[in-house]
């Protein structure tokens, strides 16, 4: 057993999420990752935006900030720059991070500020009733795409990589043990780190699209995902229709808050 109680605000339970929602699985992986690193709760700051996943911050016993739609990364940037000793973790969703907050997402990656961004990708706006999101697959139904989504989608991880993130990984709620390891690596990485978690929504996405139960949706993850290590040895044709999970990017680049501290040092020494 793992002592989750050490890290949760028990009086806020049960969780607000629907039956079968994977967001709780991600929360647990996150808490185990924090524990295995040995972070002190006082030094962890979790910042979320708006949406199902963003309700997570209310449940964790640390410094928690539930902000406005799309802006979690901006608040987190202020926190990290003002107090770099805090471990700042951003909790966000596909709509929050890549639609309304898309500009902040790419710019935080560009500046390579040491935030860990966990994006719960459920391919839909769950909390508001299933509207189409930037990751809703083409052809899939949403309340605002009643004839099927006809727009191209964002590749959340690819976006972070292209914008300059230090660490990018993709996990699923089925591959829970791997997810914990990816989150741990992301927190430990000094730089902008993204973990995109595929967390299917059985309610707003699943029912409308006849994707079956959460079990069917998780089985689909089990059958359809290949690890990045394995994907390297596969041809483009073999990878067609597959989802690559695991570590996707891990590079070292100068980190924004550290660079700024160096500037303060430079000013202090009069250089």
């Amino acid at each position: 057993m793992f002592e989750y109680e050490k890290y949760i605000r028990k009086n806020k339970f049960p969780l607000v999420w629907c039956s079968g929602c994977g967001d709780g699985i991600v929360l647990k992986a996150l808490l185990r990752a924090i524990d295995s690193i040995g972070l002190e709760k006082e030094n962890v700051c979790m910042v979320s935006g708006i949406g199902c996943s963003s309700r997570l911050t209310g449940y964790v016993d640390c410094n928690t900030l539930h902000t406005t739609h799309g802006r979690a990364i901006t608040f987190a940037t202020g926190i990290k720059m003002a107090k770099p000793e805090l471990n700042v973790i951003v909790i966000t969703g596909d709509g929050d991070a890549t639609a309304i907050g898309g500009n902040h997402y790419i710019h935080a990656a560009r500046r390579n500020i040491d935030l860990t961004v966990i994006i719960f990708n459920n391919f839909i706006y769950g909390m508001t009733g299933g509207q189409v999101s930037p990751t809703t697959p083409v052809g899939m139904l949403a309340s605002t795409a009643p004839f099927g989504n006809m727009e191209n989608t964002f590749n959340i991880s690819g976006l972070a990589q292209a914008a300059g993130a230090s660490f990018v990984a993709r996990g699923t709620v089925y591959h829970t043990v791997m997810l914990e390891k990816l989150i741990k690596k992301a927190i430990l990485k000094n730089g902008f780190s993204v973990v995109e978690v595929l967390s299917p929504c059985p309610t707003a996405f699943g029912r409308r699209n006849k994707s079956g139960t959460i079990i069917d949706m998780m089985n689909e993850q089990k059958d359809n995902c290949v690890t990045s290590a394995r994907a390297e040895r596969m041809s483009e044709r073999e990878l067609e229709g597959k989802t690559v999970i695991g570590e996707l990017v891990n590079i070292d680049r100068p980190e924004c808050s550290k660079q700024y501290r160096k500037l303060i040092e430079r000013c202090r020494s009069g250089l």
Partner: peptide, 17 residues
């Protein structure tokens, strides 16, 4: 194996041994 515990989204299962 604790798979039930780590996959329970609602913190409802504890495996003790």
């Amino acid at each position: 194996c604790e798979l039930c515990e780590i996959r329970c989204p609602d913190f409802a299962i504890t495996v003790l041994y």
